[in-house]
């Protein structure tokens, strides 16, 4: 699969007013984003996600390292920029313009004119499902509608790469689902999507690969299948007593969703299903079900960030 975005040893240092106040926002970042995939770019606040995106767009300049987009290192060239659509987080769109006027404005910035511009505006509005409100002023738009128009302005040039910063933040569940479906539809059309988000469930549902960043350092990168392979066993048991709970907890078993004598037990990675059955026998528990459980992206994220955070504390 062709790589459409590649960064090599990318560094960004924000210079402070005084010596020693510099912030190393990005450290030797090596990323490769492949054609036609949805790439989730994750990290806590201040981890360097937006810095990376801004550097890809030429809004910030790298301190060192290399950026290649669509095989070109001149990321500021019109040819490269024509193929990138960008939706920033919480951008403002003027209230006094109509939906279609906003798109026409951004279309003109891509050099579209006349019939070609009108065609693209029509296509994009239809794509984001805003035909009904295209002639309405933006002041009458809901948050979800504004986000759709934001997405439409990013799509107006029919780009090969779409960079989205928090595309579903602040939206209601229905609007989220609609945006999610739209992103999947765009992937089907061959567009590469780079999504930076804190909505881990959303990212898990649609991403092909993810990268997790912490304090400017890439901690993990890979496909969902590669990253979320660790499986543990989940057992639903009955006849659970207080003494059994403390004994199980001592063995590293997590007791969850307890209602009366019934609970769900999460076994640690090293315990097999045979060990689980033996344990039930030993504690006279009634085993109702046993199933493997895959780690969620949220759990992986928390685990990686906690590990990186602890490692930093040790170094300090």
């Amino acid at each position: 699969m062709t790589t459409v975005i590649r960064t090599t040893a990318l560094n960004k240092i924000y210079e402070g007013a005084f010596r020693g106040q510099d912030v190393h926002a990005l450290k030797d970042l090596d990323l490769d984003i492949r054609q036609g995939e949805i790439f989730g770019y994750l990290g806590p606040n201040g981890s360097g996600k937006t810095t990376t995106i801004k550097m890809l767009l030429g809004l910030l300049f790298p301190t060192s390292g290399k950026i290649e987009i669509l095989g070109s290192e001149s990321i500021d060239s019109a040819t490269v920029k024509r193929n990138i659509g960008y939706l920033p987080e919480g951008a403002y769109y003027p209230d006094f313009l109509r939906g279609e006027e906003i798109l026409a404005y951004y279309g003109k910035l891509y050099g579209l004119r006349g019939k070609e511009l009108k065609k693209r505006v029509d296509e994009t509005i239809e794509l984001v499902g805003m035909q009904h409100a295209r002639k309405r002023l933006l002041r009458g738009y809901s948050k979800g509608m504004r986000q759709r128009i934001g997405l439409a302005q990013a799509l107006i040039s029919d780009p090969k790469i779409l960079i989205l910063d928090e595309p579903t933040t602040g939206l209601d569940p229905i609007a989220r689902k609609e945006i999610r479906d739209l992103l999947l539809q765009l992937r089907e059309q061959g567009i590469t999507l780079l999504i930076s988000s804190h909505e881990l469930l959303e990212v898990e549902m649609i991403s092909d690969r993810v990268a997790i960043l912490f304090e400017g350092v890439l901690q993990k990168i890979g496909s969902m299948a590669e990253l979320l392979t660790q499986r543990e066993l989940s057992m639903t048991v009955d006849h659970l007593s207080e003494s059994s709970v403390s004994d199980l907890t001592d063995k590293g078993i997590q007791v969850e969703d307890r209602t009366g004598n019934r609970a769900v037990l999460r076994l640690p990675f090293h315990m097999s299903s045979y060990d689980g059955v033996e344990m039930c026998k030993a504690h006279s528990l009634n085993l109702l079900s046993i199933s493997p459980r895959r780690e969620t992206l949220e759990e992986l994220f928390v685990r990686i960030v906690s590990t990186a955070s602890k490692a930093r504390e040790v170094v300090q």
């Binding site: 801004k54 767009l57 809004l59 019109a78 920033p88 910035l109 891509y110 302005q153």
Partner: peptide, 8 residues
């Protein structure tokens, strides 16, 4: 951001 990310 939305303007400078375009070919401007």
């Amino acid at each position: 951001y939305t303007v400078l990310s375009k070919p401007v």
